[in-house]
Structures are given as C-alpha cells and as structure tokens.
C-alpha cells in the first residue's frame, strides 16, 4: 500500500470515526445511536487493520479484526438486546415511556454539537505535543481519538437514558483504543486482551444494572436516580 493511499484511508477511517461520534450526539433514537455506534466500531477496527497492512504486521490485522468483532458486533448486540428488552416491556403496556428515545438530554442537541466542536478544537490543542513528538500520519490523526474521548465523556455527562450512558462510555473507550493504535500501534496484547475483557464485562454489568433499574424504578432515566444524596 502506498504511503499516500495509506494516509488517505487512515484519514478516512478517522474522519468516519469522529463523524460517528458526532452523530451519536446528534441522534435521539437509541436504535439509531446503537447503529451508528456499530459503524464507529467498524471505523475503529479499520485503523489497526490499515496499520497492519501498511507495516506488514499481521498480528495487528488480527487484533483489528478482533476489535471489530467486539466493537462493531458484540457490544452493539448487547446494547441492542438490552434495548429490545426495555422496549418490549413498553410495547406490552402499550405506553410510550420514552425508553427508546433520548427525548430530553440535559444539554440540547444544538448546544451539544457546538460543544463537540469546541471539544474537538481542545483535543487538537492538547494533542499538539503528542504530534510534535513523532509527526507521522498516524499521530497526525491522534486528535481524533482524543476528541472522541471528550465527546464520549460529554455524552456520559449529558444523556439521561441509561443506555445512552452506556454508549457514551463505549465512545470514550473507543476513543482511547483509537488513540492507542494511532499513537503506538496498540498496547501489548495481554493488556489489550485484559482491557477488552474488562470493557465487555463492564457493559455486561451495566446491562444487568439497567434491567434491575428498570425493575426497581420503572424507568431507565438516570436523572430519576436521586435517592442517594446528602
């Protein structure tokens, strides 16, 4: 693969990666969000695959495929399953409790998008020393990873549905993984495995907790969880 093509493809993947994060922020339908999230997983998986192909490191390609399976397949599946379970209850009672929609985020969509823009700028500013340390096409794209981390965190802060928060958390994690690949072609395998396993477990835990929350509170609106306070 030529240097130019590699750079263009990498930039494309990174662009799609960032765009997916912004769309997650934009959309309100949870099903759509999960779909976008899955697409982002694909873009994320593309990064190590591209790197592996470019540097002829097939292990990276394998890791990339693994990542793709996890991030674009398994995790969206889990979230979607939880969503189905929730909306199933909704259909059974025939009421629209808004479980499948992020009807009223704490910061409205327009402001969220503007904030995302600001966060992206911040990510570029912050990533300057990272880029300067070793200016290659990969590191040039590092701000994207950081921006997705920040956007993911922002989603976590402003979204009210439990599943939106899960997606926010996963965005955050995607961003970190992207950063890891872009910066240093990924962390050692044992760590990578451990991290992936932990993320998977975390999502499982959150899914279980979402179900329990639904049982206990009758809703998955996180803003209703205010019984514990001072």
């Amino acid at each position: 693969m030529s240097e130019g093509l590699f750079t263009q493809l990498l930039d494309l993947a990174c662009g799609a990666f960032l765009l997916a994060a912004v769309i997650v922020l934009w959309r309100r339908e949870l099903t759509a969000i999960v779909r976008v999230f899955a697409l982002q997983g694909v873009a994320l998986a593309a990064i190590p695959v591209l790197l592996g192909v470019h540097e002829r490191r097939w292990d990276l390609v394998v890791v990339g495929v693994g990542i793709g399976v996890l991030r674009a397949g398994l995790l969206p599946y889990l979230v979607r399953r939880a969503l189905t379970a929730l909306t199933a209850g909704q259909q059974r009672y025939g009421t629209d409790t808004g479980e499948s929609r992020e009807t009223q985020p704490l910061v409205n969509v327009a402001a969220s998008l503007l904030t995302a823009a600001a966060l992206t700028l911040l990510a570029y500013a912050v990533a300057r020393p990272l880029v300067e340390l070793d200016p290659t096409p990969e590191t040039q794209a590092l701000p994207v990873g950081l921006a997705v981390v920040l956007i993911g965190f922002f989603t976590l802060v402003t979204r009210r549905r439990a599943l939106s928060q899960v997606v926010g958390f996963l965005l955050l994690d995607n961003g970190i993984t992207a950063t890891a690949f872009l910066a240093a072609a990924g962390v050692p395998l044992i760590v990578e495995l451990g991290v992936s396993f932990d993320v998977l477990l975390a999502v499982l835990v959150l899914q279980i907790l979402t179900t329990r929350m639904r049982e206990a509170f009758g809703t998955t609106d996180i803003d209703d969880l205010r019984e514990l306070h001072d």
Binding site: Q165, F169, A216
Partner: peptide, 18 residues
C-alpha cells in the same frame, strides 16, 4: 437489589469506569 443499591451500583460503575 433495592432501589438505592441499584442506584449506588450504577453510579459506582459509570463514574469509576469513566
């Protein structure tokens, strides 16, 4: 598995994981 413990667990996981 009470309301409060679910709430606490959620906060715990989300904040700590983030």
């Amino acid at each position: 598995r009470t309301r409060t413990s679910v709430e606490a667990a959620w906060k715990y996981v989300v904040i700590c994981s983030a």
